[in-house]
Amino acid sequence: MCDTCGCGQPNEAVTIRKPGEERHSHPHHHEHDHSHPHDHSHSHDHGREIVIETDILAKNNLIAERNRGYFEAKNIFTLNLVSSPGSGKTTILEKTISSLKNQITCAVIEGDQQTMNDADRIDATGAAVVQVNTGTGCHLDSNMVNQGAKKLNVENDSILFIENVGNLVCPALFDLGEAHKVVIISVTEGDDKPHKYPTMFSVSDICIINKIDLLPYVDFDVEKCKEYARQVNPNIKFIEISATKGDGLNTWTEWLHSNVKK
């Protein structure tokens, strides 16, 4: 079904491309044959009750588990990076990939509503990358990751970073088959983000606090932020970094090293 207007047309808005690939044009046109009247009203005291007890996200969760099995079999350590727009996800990836060069192979699935900009930045680091453009969609789902991973043909014994669409709400609900969700917050945001968006912090295992070089200039209390996040998720681990200046990046890359099974 179409993601834009909910009509019965197939959804053609999502595209998955490697840098340099042409975008196929998918015009969003609808030709609806309305063969049923729209003026009926349904009363609920008749008809047949069908009990199904089905998880609404069953299809997404099934494909996510299939992805997880694929990643485990190939020893691909997969991380789902989630944050607000502008927290520095792409810069973190650029620096991480550069510092892991010649040690661990990295691949990236970039999620954005539009543009190849992020994929082009990752491409410049030499890592394999595909860009998923979700069109109007506000999150990646497990099927997009399934297709993206196949297109990438990710190497065995590597790390796959999935950079989700910048959004602290919707991606929380969609399992992609990752080993961990990593939530990124930058100190230019409010330190009460974990209280404002508790679901995302409750489903993430790692919280990266980015742009710590700017702490002297902003009103962000790191300890308060941690305390708020722990209230939602007592087991969440913190890594404080400055992706642009390099502070704390070692802690992050050491954590990655320790998680990629030899």
Binding site: I56, G137, H139, D141
Partner: peptide, 13 residues
Amino acid sequence: MHEMTIAMNIVDI
């Protein structure tokens, strides 16, 4: 607006 995806999943199922 993930509710649209949820709604579409419901209708689909």
